[in-house]
Simulated scan of single mutants.
Amino acid sequence: MVAQDCTLVGGGRPLALARWLLVVAAMVFAMVVIGGITRVTESGLSITEWKPVTGALPPLSEAQWQAEFAAYQNIGEYQQVAGPAGMTLADYKFIYFWEWAHRLLGRLIGLAFALPLLVFWVRGMIPAGYKPRLLALLALGGLQGAFGWLMVRSGLNTEMTNVSHFWLSIHLLTALFTLAGLVWTALDLRALTRSIGPARVTSLGVLVGVMLFVQLLLGAWVAGLRAGLASDTWPLMQGKLVPEADWSQGIVWTFTHDPFWLHFLHRWWAFAVLAVLIVLARRLRPIDRRASVAIHSAVGLQILLGIATVMSGVDLWLAVAHQAVGALLVASVAWGIHAVGQRR
């Protein structure tokens, strides 16, 4: 019988690493939730500079707050939206807090991953074959920060009143891919303690992953274009099942920019994803019932929250809950695809 967390197949201490990766995954989940709050409260452009070290501290004096507020007043979001709405310094401090918290948590996640990785590496605790994968996860974290700044920078001019929805989708999807990678690697490491090799992605896993990716991409574009406000009724939009969309600029533009069409695609592609997730969950029942229940619960709640968000006119906390459960769904699906691949 193998002692818990001792040196096992491939060497190292896989259970310790698995626990660490799950802690980091929980931090990434919190990052996605705070990112949702930042998005819905229009806080993303409140900090107009990227200061990797000194930016960890918020303004500590009235003069520093006035300087930050003055920088924000130079961009289009303030000049065309927040300023005419009568934004005060107190209002600015509220949105600044959420963007600062989002960036601070990103820094903490970087430290929570890089420093333990260094310790595990130096002490020879990483099982054979896992160093490249852990370095790839570290690189994804670095890219996530870079994509976040590129997203913010896309909205820092006098013409724009929002960030690019393309950069928003890249930023969000990188975070969710990283979350899935952390969960998958943690599960592989836990399986290693039972002398089971890494799971493989099956054809069903590929299908589920692609369909879920499309839905997440559509959701990010809907958020970036504020297309959730295109309709507050369900299932009809504009009193019709299929809304009127702008096709005058070509099919590519409509499928990437038209808020009515993207809203329509996002709300109905969800049911195609639901169908394939039900297939995955049923396949999982004799393999890992907990993963099956997690997928059923997450996708059902996600669809209900999506409908509620639309009908509420994009209520802040419903929208945030919708994004949070979306992240839980990604983690659950990674778990399920891993279980199916491990069985094979």
Rank of each mutant, 00 (worst) to 15 (best):
M1C: 09
Q4M: 12
C6D: 04
G11R: 04
G12Q: 04
P14I: 02
P14D: 11
L22A: 06
V23R: 15
V33S: 01
V33W: 10
I37Y: 14
E42A: 11
S43R: 09
G44S: 05
I47V: 13
E49T: 15
P59L: 13
L60K: 02
A63L: 10
Q66R: 13
E68A: 15
E68Q: 12
E77L: 12
A82G: 00
A85E: 14
T88Q: 13
A90W: 04
A90Q: 13
W100V: 04
W100C: 05
A101N: 09
A101C: 08
L105Y: 12
L111Y: 10
F113W: 10
F113T: 03
L118P: 00
F120G: 01
F120L: 02
Y130W: 01
R133A: 01
L135V: 14
A136L: 14
L138V: 08
L150V: 08
M151P: 12
M151I: 10
M151A: 06
G155L: 11
L156R: 03
T158H: 05
V163L: 06
S169F: 02
L172D: 09
F177V: 14
F177S: 15
G181Q: 10
W184F: 05
D188R: 12
L189M: 09
L189Q: 12
L192P: 09
T193V: 02
P198H: 07
T202N: 06
S203N: 09
V208D: 07
V210Y: 03
V214F: 15
V222A: 08
R226D: 13
A227Q: 02
D232T: 14
D232Q: 14
P235A: 00
Q238Y: 04
A245S: 15
D246I: 06
T254R: 02
T256G: 11
W261Q: 02
A272L: 13
A275F: 12
V276C: 09
L277D: 04
V279L: 15
R283V: 08
R285I: 14
I287Y: 01
I287V: 15
D288P: 00
S292Q: 03
S292M: 07
A294E: 11
A298E: 08
Q302L: 15
L304E: 06
L305H: 00
V310M: 12
M311Y: 03
M311R: 07
A321Q: 06
A321N: 03
V325L: 08
A327M: 05
A327R: 11
L329R: 06
V330W: 01
V330R: 05
V330M: 09
A331G: 13
W335A: 01
W335M: 01
G336V: 08
